[in-house]
Amino acid sequence: MKDFFYAIQDLFVNVLFKPLDALRALELENWFAASIISWIFVVICLVALVYWMLQLKKFNDNNEEDKTVSSHSFL
Protein backbone atom coordinates (compact mmCIF):
# COMPACT_ATOMS: atom_id res chain seq x y z
CA MET A 1 0.00 0.00 0.00
CA LYS A 2 2.93 2.30 0.71
CA ASP A 3 4.15 1.88 -2.87
CA PHE A 4 0.79 3.11 -4.16
CA PHE A 5 1.17 6.42 -2.33
CA TYR A 6 4.79 6.73 -3.46
CA ALA A 7 3.56 6.22 -7.02
CA ILE A 8 1.07 9.07 -6.60
CA GLN A 9 3.85 11.25 -5.20
CA ASP A 10 6.11 10.36 -8.10
CA LEU A 11 3.36 11.16 -10.61
CA PHE A 12 2.78 14.62 -9.22
CA VAL A 13 6.37 15.59 -8.41
CA ASN A 14 8.13 14.19 -11.48
CA VAL A 15 5.45 14.38 -14.18
CA LEU A 16 2.55 16.77 -13.57
CA PHE A 17 4.49 19.59 -11.91
CA LYS A 18 7.39 19.47 -14.39
CA PRO A 19 6.10 22.48 -16.41
CA LEU A 20 5.87 24.54 -13.23
CA ASP A 21 9.43 23.64 -12.30
CA ALA A 22 10.54 24.68 -15.77
CA LEU A 23 8.70 28.00 -15.41
CA ARG A 24 10.36 28.56 -12.04
CA ALA A 25 13.78 27.89 -13.54
CA LEU A 26 12.99 30.18 -16.48
CA GLU A 27 12.11 32.98 -14.07
CA LEU A 28 15.55 32.78 -12.51
CA GLU A 29 17.20 32.98 -15.93
CA ASN A 30 14.94 35.45 -17.73
CA TRP A 31 12.21 37.25 -15.83
CA PHE A 32 10.68 38.80 -18.96
CA ALA A 33 10.12 35.44 -20.66
CA ALA A 34 8.39 34.04 -17.57
CA SER A 35 6.21 37.16 -17.37
CA ILE A 36 5.28 36.90 -21.04
CA ILE A 37 4.04 33.36 -20.46
CA SER A 38 1.92 34.59 -17.55
CA TRP A 39 0.50 37.43 -19.63
CA ILE A 40 -0.42 34.96 -22.40
CA PHE A 41 -2.51 33.04 -19.87
CA VAL A 42 -4.13 36.28 -18.69
CA VAL A 43 -5.05 37.23 -22.28
CA ILE A 44 -6.53 33.77 -22.92
CA CYS A 45 -8.70 34.10 -19.80
CA LEU A 46 -9.76 37.61 -20.81
CA VAL A 47 -10.78 36.45 -24.29
CA ALA A 48 -12.78 33.58 -22.77
CA LEU A 49 -14.52 36.01 -20.37
CA VAL A 50 -15.45 38.41 -23.18
CA TYR A 51 -16.79 35.52 -25.30
CA TRP A 52 -18.84 34.27 -22.35
CA MET A 53 -20.30 37.73 -21.67
CA LEU A 54 -21.21 38.18 -25.35
CA GLN A 55 -22.99 34.81 -25.35
CA LEU A 56 -24.91 35.79 -22.20
CA LYS A 57 -25.90 39.09 -23.81
CA LYS A 58 -27.10 37.26 -26.93
CA PHE A 59 -29.33 34.96 -24.91
CA ASN A 60 -30.58 37.89 -22.83
CA ASP A 61 -31.46 39.89 -25.97
CA ASN A 62 -33.45 36.94 -27.38
CA ASN A 63 -35.54 36.77 -24.16
CA GLU A 64 -34.99 33.02 -23.98
CA GLU A 65 -34.80 32.92 -20.18
CA ASP A 66 -37.93 32.62 -18.06
CA LYS A 67 -37.63 35.52 -15.61
CA THR A 68 -41.01 35.23 -13.94
CA VAL A 69 -41.09 35.03 -10.17
CA SER A 70 -42.97 31.75 -10.25
CA SER A 71 -40.24 30.05 -12.27
CA HIS A 72 -38.26 29.36 -9.09
CA SER A 73 -39.99 28.35 -5.92
CA PHE A 74 -37.35 29.93 -3.68
CA LEU A 75 -38.02 33.39 -5.17
Rank of each mutant, 00 (worst) to 15 (best):
Y51Q: 14
L56V: 09
A7W: 04
V43Y: 06
D10F: 03
P19Y: 05
L49F: 02
Q9T: 07
C45Q: 09
Q55F: 05
A48V: 05
V42G: 00
S70Q: 09
F41E: 03
D66E: 13
V47Y: 03
F12R: 02
M53S: 05
S38L: 13
A34D: 04
K57L: 15
F4L: 07
A25C: 03
C45Y: 07
E64L: 14
S38R: 12
W39K: 10
K58N: 08
N63R: 11
A25D: 14
L46P: 01
A22N: 12
D66G: 12
K58F: 12
N63Y: 07
S71M: 09
V43N: 01
L11C: 01
N14Y: 07
S70I: 06
L56C: 12
N14F: 06
Y6A: 04
F74H: 11
E29V: 15
E64S: 09
N62F: 08
F59T: 06
N30K: 10
D10K: 09
A22C: 02
S70T: 12
A22Y: 06
F17S: 03
W39S: 12
S38T: 12
N14V: 00
K2A: 04
L23C: 07
H72K: 14
L75G: 01
A34L: 08
V50S: 03
L28V: 03
F74I: 12
L20M: 10
L20K: 01
